[in-house]
Design a protein around this nucleic acid. Sequence first.
DNA 1: CCTAATTAAGAGTATTTTATCTTAATTAAA
DNA 2: TTTAATTAAGATAAAATACTCTTAATTAGG
Lengths: 146, 146
Amino acid sequence: MKVLSKSSEYGLRALLYMVGKRGGEQEYVSIREMSEQLDISFHFLTKILQSLTQSNILASYRGPSGGVAFNIPPEKIMLSDVVRVLEGEDFFDTCLLGLPGCGEKKPCPMHQFWKEIKAALKHEFETTTLAQMGQITLDSRLRLMP
Amino acid sequence: MKVLSKSSEYGLRALLYMVGKRGGEQEYVSIREMSEQLDISFHFLTKILQSLTQSNILASYRGPSGGVAFNIPPEKIMLSDVVRVLEGEDFFDTCLLGLPGCGEKKPCPMHQFWKEIKAALKHEFETTTLAQMGQITLDSRLRLMP
DNA sequence: CCTAATTAAGAGTATTTTATCTTAATTAAA
DNA sequence: TTTAATTAAGATAAAATACTCTTAATTAGG
Ligand code: SF4
Ligand code: SF4
């Protein structure tokens, strides 16, 4: 059961790395550094973070000692914000069986159940911030989980 | 959020078609017929059903008026049985962030939540039978949902 | 026995996702 | 002002998934 694409996975890992890193404030974090620390393809990660920059979740700065930084404090960035950018707007609105147009009229026996699961997932993503995720996450997970 | 692969989607749709079809008993249903009625590639569907046959969920019969039939009554086939065959054994055992080895030691803030969601999903799939799904499903869904 | 209808099996193709490579633009610092 | 470090952007390639084609095996019925 693959919930998130590699893009989201890598994107989140990078964002969590950034949360863990910023001791004082808004310093630009090098994408190269992150790609090496997290063992993610540099160019791939660059693109992922680019789209987060274009969505104004991150700000970027080119040139030596450039990188990306939070454009919004991570206490205010919900996981759903990230996922919506990287997975698409309809991420929380799919049919369990992969069929289009979840029909309320004559639902299958899983419809109600799936509806609830989706709502729970959505709610959790919409109420969990990057900062919360970051609390425990940095080296205990990001580096050690292959 | 793509939960099931196309294989599972098509496989389930075919199985539900079969549930809806059998008026009396165990007649072999032609794969060609199903592929046309459900608008699924014949050869692709053949493979999917082949693996269900190899897993003894279905029985097959070659030659004129051959096809596939339930080897087990659909009242006793759980959705999880089908999904485990078509998606793999570890379908219900993945990490939300796509990282391997769900670690109980220092879990991220979503770990417990995701664990519960997974358990709920698993439970629902393990307690819902094909027959239950079939009750309402046949033409109201299978044909009309593109 | 012969033919047509069917599933089985495996090779081959197409599409999507994931990853890499190349070049351009920007910026700090020597 | 030159150089090196960096992100931006787009082309290309590899891998995974989804789908198609070809051939073989099986079986009912003429
Ligand atoms: S009724 Fe079932 S199959 Fe149809 S859209 Fe709802 S969950 Fe999906
Ligand atoms: S702690 Fe979070 S990221 Fe790690 S395995 Fe559990 S759910 Fe996945």
